[in-house]
């Protein structure tokens, strides 16, 4: 029985896990965060400047006081050097995408990851009223970029500074931690949905398709006398709740992964949460797709002349 269960949850041994998942995490999250920040640029002043919808001093009053905000940093340094709020804002506006580009290229990877996370946390804390799921999951991904040896593969650090690759065992431990976190996230997300009756009777899907419908041209009214909202509601709950189980079973992994990717693509399409969905898909591919890609069989090294003579 024990062997049977072990076989079901069989993971490839550390040496055969494809370390490309670290590249996927680093490049994926750096690229999406960069695109996300750029998407905000046309309206940057409407959200952060002194003439924003929620002016910075008001937003600062409700920020999480464990971390600074752009406004609180401005207030702190204003006492030391005369500087305008716009100048501090510009500093963040330039530095954050720059650190993300460094992270993407794998140049000074760890300092770039630490700086990206710090700046991301400060920026998110400065717009507490505007922040949603994508900000949290970006923080999680950036945090793991700080901890894991993500700069040891396909990076400028390797190319220019000859960064040594970590052991397969260490990479495997990092992956296990990351996978566990992703599993916990989905399990609790499913559990919290299951607790409310609206997900069990299809009401949440109905409300989502009408209240949060990003595809205004599509009318979903016809669904009221079909069991579709009910089925999608239950499918969502089950997909998330049973994620830790079925994603770790070798035989069901690709199906569950496909299901969760379709789920996030649907969120992007129907709710317009493009960046949130992209981040979630990257997290999933990093945890359960990239490590299981079989690498090309190694090309045998040509034998040296003495070996050939000996042969």
């Amino acid at each position: 029985m024990k062997t049977f269960i072990k076989n079901i949850f069989k993971q490839p041994v550390a040496t055969t896990q494809n370390p490309l998942w670290m590249v996927c995490l680093r490049c994926g999250i750096a690229l999406i965060s960069f695109a996300h920040f750029m998407a905000l640029q046309p309206d940057f002043d409407n959200i952060f400047s002194a003439h924003a919808f929620v002016s910075p001093d008001i937003a600062n009053a409700t920020r999480d006081f464990l971390l600074p905000s752009i406004y609180s940093i401005y207030k702190s340094i204003q006492g030391i050097i005369p500087i305008s709020y716009e100048a501090v804002l510009l500093f963040f506006r330039i530095l954050y995408p720059l650190t993300l580009l460094f992270l993407l290229a794998g140049l000074f990877t760890r300092p770039a990851a630490i700086l990206s996370l710090a700046l991301h946390l400060v920026i998110t804390n400065s717009m507490e009223y505007y922040s949603y799921g994508v900000d949290l999951f970006t923080s999680i991904a950036l945090f793991y970029c700080c901890v894991f040896p993500i700069g040891s593969l396909f990076s400028l650090d390797v190319l220019w500074f000859k960064k040594v690759s970590p052991s397969a065992d260490r990479i495997s431990k990092c992956l296990k931690l990351f996978q566990t976190h992703v599993c916990i996230m989905y399990f609790f997300s499913g559990l919290e949905k299951l607790m409310g009756y609206n997900w069990r009777n299809g009401e949440s899907i109905w409300r989502m398709l009408h209240g949060y419908n990003a595809t205004e041209s599509v009318n979903f009214d016809f669904l009221y006398n079909t069991p579709i909202p009910l089925l999608i509601g239950w499918a969502t709950v089950m997909l998330e709740l049973l994620y830790p189980l079925f994603i770790n079973i070798q035989q069901t992994r690709k199906w569950w992964l496909a299901g969760i990717v379709i789920f996030h693509v649907s969120i992007a399409f129907f709710m317009g949460l493009y960046f949130f969905s992209s981040v979630m898909i990257i997290l999933n591919l990093t945890a359960y797709y990239m490590p299981f890609i079989e690498e090309n069989k190694p090309v045998l090294a040509p034998k040296s002349l003495p070996q050939l003579i000996e042969a």
Partner: peptide, 16 residues
């Protein structure tokens, strides 16, 4: 806060 491990994951739950 710093590790982003202290936040809830149940978006749109228990209801929308």
């Amino acid at each position: 806060k710093l590790t982003a491990a202290g936040s809830p994951y149940g978006y749109f739950a228990p209801n929308i």
